[in-house]
Computed example of a mutant assay.
Amino acid sequence: MVTVNLGMLHYVIDHVYGAFMHRTKISPPFFSRGWGGSKLELLERLINQLFPDVEGQIWPPNLIQPMWKTVWESKNACLREGVFRTPCDEQLLNALPPESHYARVAFLTPKFVSPQNMACVVHLAGTGDHTFERRLRLGGPLLKENIATMVLESPFYGQRRPVLQRGAKLLCVSDLLLLGRATIEEARSLLHWLDSEAGFGKMGVCGLSMGQYILLLLLHF
């Protein structure tokens, strides 16, 4: 009987695939259009504008009003999807591609439980996570513990991806900075909405890969 170490098999397949894609250049590289500005000074100013001092941050953030539609309902749970205009200020909004001006969010909640008696976790996207499904699967088991799941679609991802961008391959370095700051603003506003509008008493944020990195930045705002 032949046994296979799945972990090692996945490792080998990943390396073979990565080497093939890199050497054949079938897939475009990250940041194929460079920094996103003609001078490095432009990028430095962008960083200072996008990540100001913590003392300059204001709570509560801008209040959002998502427009909800029900995707499905079961005996014990309900999944809704919402759309809202990103709460970023005008300067940041103008720097974002038009496709990213409106944010999308999925909201999975247990039924017959009041918001005051359950918690909610906002799940941030990892690199290449263009859909809601993966993070909703993480939220499924939480329903039994009366924990709701809110999944935010990142700017530059999914339906918010610019037309010329292929997959998760951001065109410019500045796009990564914009993605991070816009996600922070949207996550802050979602937490504020959960607290002030939906009435949740307990809230949290989680993320994997890029989502974890943005979460660490969010803690400083």
Rank of each mutant, 00 (worst) to 15 (best):
152 L>C: 00
84 F>M: 03
138 L>F: 09
57 Q>L: 12
89 D>V: 06
89 D>H: 08
147 I>H: 03
70 T>G: 13
163 V>T: 15
162 P>C: 07
43 L>G: 01
102 Y>V: 14
17 Y>H: 14
180 G>A: 04
217 L>T: 00
219 L>A: 09
131 T>W: 12
8 M>Y: 13
78 C>K: 15
33 R>G: 07
180 G>S: 05
153 E>W: 01
62 N>C: 11
211 G>L: 00
162 P>V: 02
127 T>N: 07
219 L>K: 01
207 G>I: 01
210 M>Y: 02
150 M>C: 09
124 L>C: 00
13 I>A: 08
190 L>Y: 02
78 C>M: 14
166 R>H: 14
143 L>Q: 09
105 V>A: 05
87 P>E: 03
109 T>D: 02
179 L>I: 01
4 V>Q: 09
50 L>T: 00
13 I>C: 06
74 S>G: 12
121 V>Y: 06
159 Q>V: 14
94 N>D: 15
65 Q>F: 12
65 Q>W: 12
128 G>V: 04
139 G>K: 04
174 S>W: 00
15 H>Y: 07
8 M>D: 13
174 S>T: 06
152 L>R: 00
92 L>Q: 04
94 N>L: 11
44 E>Y: 10
153 E>A: 06
182 A>V: 01
113 V>C: 10
173 V>C: 08
50 L>W: 00
114 S>D: 15
54 V>K: 09
217 L>P: 00
116 Q>A: 14
198 A>K: 10
37 G>V: 06
91 Q>P: 05
143 L>I: 13
17 Y>I: 15
161 R>T: 03
220 H>D: 13
119 A>Y: 02
87 P>A: 04
113 V>K: 10
38 S>H: 09
158 G>A: 09
92 L>G: 01
171 L>F: 04
14 D>E: 15
161 R>V: 01
177 L>W: 00
208 L>H: 08
102 Y>Q: 14
48 N>S: 09
44 E>F: 09
120 C>P: 03
186 E>A: 00
71 V>G: 07
4 V>W: 12
38 S>R: 12
148 A>P: 04
51 F>H: 04
21 M>E: 12
159 Q>P: 13
171 L>I: 07
120 C>F: 06
120 C>Q: 05
33 R>S: 10
49 Q>E: 05
189 S>T: 08
186 E>C: 00
173 V>R: 05
195 D>R: 13
25 K>T: 15
28 P>N: 06
178 L>C: 08
31 F>I: 02
173 V>H: 05
2 V>P: 10
132 F>M: 04
132 F>T: 02
32 S>L: 12
193 W>N: 01
129 D>G: 08
114 S>T: 14
39 K>F: 09
161 R>W: 03
54 V>W: 07
138 L>Q: 11
169 K>L: 05
80 R>C: 15
198 A>N: 08
112 F>K: 15
51 F>G: 02
28 P>Q: 07
85 R>V: 11
78 C>F: 10
50 L>Q: 00
190 L>V: 02
93 L>Y: 09
141 P>L: 12
114 S>N: 13
153 E>D: 06
53 D>R: 15
101 H>S: 09
141 P>R: 10
